[in-house]
């Protein structure tokens, strides 16, 4: 009976885990595309993405100061100490309004969307892999 209960629980958690895991995977891909390190430190303020914490071992969620890549959803989150970091956003509005944002990752119409600014890629001298080039505009 105990085993059946554990199996059921694992089954349920496996399904609820899926969509979140996709988000975590994409965050990890973006972080590793920008910073070539085994474990990349990221900071994220978006509540929709907070639960992805701990799902991928190659990404460590940390404070804004210690992060290599920062994902912001609100302009207020950005403090001066973090200005020098790689800046990504989860809001298309911020992507358009903040000049120093490298790109945006957001969920729209049930699908993940990534857009990357070509001007920032050139400015920061980031080399993107082939799979990421299609997101550049």
């Amino acid at each position: 009976m105990k085993i059946i209960f554990i199996l059921m629980l694992s089954f349920i958690s496996l399904f609820s885990f899926d969509a979140l895991h996709v988000k975590a995977e994409i965050l990890s891909h973006i972080a590793h595309e920008l910073v070539k390190k085994d474990v990349v430190n990221i900071y994220i303020d978006d509540k929709k993405f907070i639960k992805t914490k701990g799902l991928i071992s190659s990404v460590k969620y940390t404070s804004c100061q210690n992060a290599d890549v920062i994902f912001i959803s609100k302009k207020e989150t950005l403090n001066k100490k973090c200005n020098s970091k790689y800046l990504f956003t989860t809001s298309y509005y911020l992507y358009q309004s903040l000049p120093d944002v490298i790109g945006v990752f957001f969920w729209q119409k049930g699908r993940p969307n990534i857009i990357i600014k070509s001007s920032m890629i050139k400015k920061l001298n980031i080399s993107l892999s082939e799979s990421f080039k299609k997101y550049v505009e």
């Binding site: 298309y92 358009q96 857009i115 997101y135 505009e137």
Partner: peptide
């Protein structure tokens, strides 16, 4: 024609899956 929270901006880049 999507709801406001899902609506894309004019000329927003669309990357088809």
């Amino acid at each position: 024609g999507s709801e406001l929270d899902e609506r894309a901006y004019l000329a927003q880049k669309f990357t088809p899956s």
